[in-house]
Design a protein around this nucleic acid. Structure first.
Lengths: 96, 96
DNA sequence: ATAAACTTGTTTATTACATAAACCTAATTT
DNA sequence: AAATTAGGTTTATGTAATAAACAAGTTTAT
């Protein structure tokens, strides 16, 4: 009847991150921070969870002498997102 | 950018319950149990949370001498569900 | 040059939540 | 009358979400 919802994506912040990444080539930590309105700590944690699931790739470098974290969605992440969209859509329709 | 997701509805089981109730006049405990595949305990807990938020009305009676719990969505619940659908839709589109 | 404040994150600690397991009461069956 | 079934509820526990504290270095002000 109802498809299971990927617990990793069924979370506001992680879903926001993936939703943002799906639309861009890649995104920096501060971009995600601003767009999501999350705290740094929470964003850091959730980025790592997505990374450990291989939903995103994370590159750490420097710019203007400061640390710079860049995120990019992977094919695995894209696939998971598309499945999630399909699954949750089944909950949102009024018809059976 | 992203609208907040009602925490009460952003849960697989509770969303299933509301999604089912939105399509029917009312539903019995066992109907929800079967359709959602939840355990009785979990269903009981989540029904009560929805009830405490006035998202649903719960009527307890008897049928054939056995307890019978019947649930019905309220206007508050309908409103919350519609808002949730709109909010989460903002996360699912590929365009910005 | 040194202290203060800022940048960019990470780690830790606490609270809340989701869920299964255990329990309860009454009815039915054997 | 003992065991089983029906219909739920309560409790206990592990997991997860999040904020608060910390870290490591950089820039600015004094």
């Amino acid at each position: 009847m109802f498809k299971d919802l990927d617990p990793l994506l069924h979370n506001q912040l992680r879903l926001s991150i993936i939703s943002l990444l799906i639309g861009v080539e890649s995104a920096e930590f501060n971009f995600l921070l601003e767009k999501t309105g999350a705290t740094r700590g929470n964003l850091s944690v959730q980025i790592n969870k997505l990374k450990e699931a291989s939903y995103i790739d994370v590159k750490k470098g420097f710019r203007n002498n400061y640390p710079l974290t860049t995120c990019k969605i992977t094919p695995v992440g894209i696939d998971a997102f598309e499945k999630y969209v399909e699954a949750i859509s089944g909950y949102l329709r009024k018809e059976d």
